[in-house]
Computed example of a mutant assay.
Amino acid sequence: MNWRLTAACRDLDPDVFFPIGTGGMSLVQIAEAKTVCRRCPVAEQCLAWAVGDGRVEGIWGGTTENERRAMRLREDLGS
């Protein structure tokens, strides 16, 4: 089964998950998106997909662009 079919964000406005910037009102948007991700039954699959696919923009699996970049860097350094 496709994990996207049971994602908590499935029927929400996608703009919430693609904030413009990292300050001001974008922080509110990021917090809203992460709140949805925390209750999502497929957040782990979403994050794995985003990291594996190299997704840069947006909130995926409860992480921001910078958080995923840091994850990839840690993985690279650990190899």
Rank of each mutant, 00 (worst) to 15 (best):
C40S: 09
W60Y: 13
G62N: 12
L27V: 13
K34H: 13
P41M: 08
C40R: 08
A43Y: 09
D53R: 03
A31K: 13
G58K: 08
P41R: 12
R55I: 05
A43K: 13
C46T: 05
T64L: 02
L27K: 15
D53H: 05
W49I: 00
L47R: 15
C40D: 07
E57V: 02
K34P: 13
P41Y: 07
G54Q: 05
E65V: 01
T35M: 08
E32V: 03
A31G: 08
E44C: 01
E75V: 00
I30M: 15
T64I: 03
T63R: 14
E67W: 05
L27F: 02
V51M: 08
E44P: 00
V36L: 09
A43I: 08
C40I: 10
A70E: 15
R39F: 07
L27Q: 15
V51Q: 03
I30W: 07
K34M: 15
K34D: 12
T35Q: 14
A48C: 01
W49V: 02
V42N: 03
C40V: 09
E57N: 07
P41L: 07
Q45V: 01
I59E: 07
A31L: 04
L27G: 04
D53W: 00
E57I: 03
T64D: 03
R39H: 13
W60D: 09
K34T: 14
A50T: 11
R69A: 14
T64E: 03
I59Y: 08
V36A: 06
C46H: 04
R39G: 15
W60N: 07
E65I: 01
C46W: 04
E67P: 05
R69E: 03
R38V: 02
W60R: 06
T64A: 03
C37R: 13
R68K: 06
A33P: 11
T63A: 11
C46G: 07
G61K: 10
V36Y: 14
V51A: 02
E67V: 06
C37H: 13
L47I: 07
A48G: 04
R74P: 01
A43W: 12
T64R: 04
V51Y: 00
V36S: 04
V42I: 11
V28S: 12
A48I: 01
V42D: 04
G58F: 10
T63H: 11
G54E: 03
R38F: 03
E65F: 01
R69P: 00
R38D: 14
I59F: 08
A70W: 05
A70P: 01
E44Q: 11
D76V: 06
A33T: 12
G62V: 11
E32D: 14
Q45P: 01
A48N: 11
L73Y: 05
E32R: 15
G61L: 11
V36C: 04
D53L: 00
G52R: 02
C46M: 06
Q45W: 01
D76G: 05
V51F: 00
A43C: 06
D76A: 15
L27P: 02
G52S: 07
Q45I: 00
A70N: 12
G54A: 04
W49S: 09
K34G: 12
T35P: 00
R72I: 00
W49R: 03
D76T: 11
L47C: 07
R68N: 07
A48D: 14
A50D: 09
R55M: 11
G54Y: 03
N66R: 14
R69M: 02
R55D: 06
L47K: 09
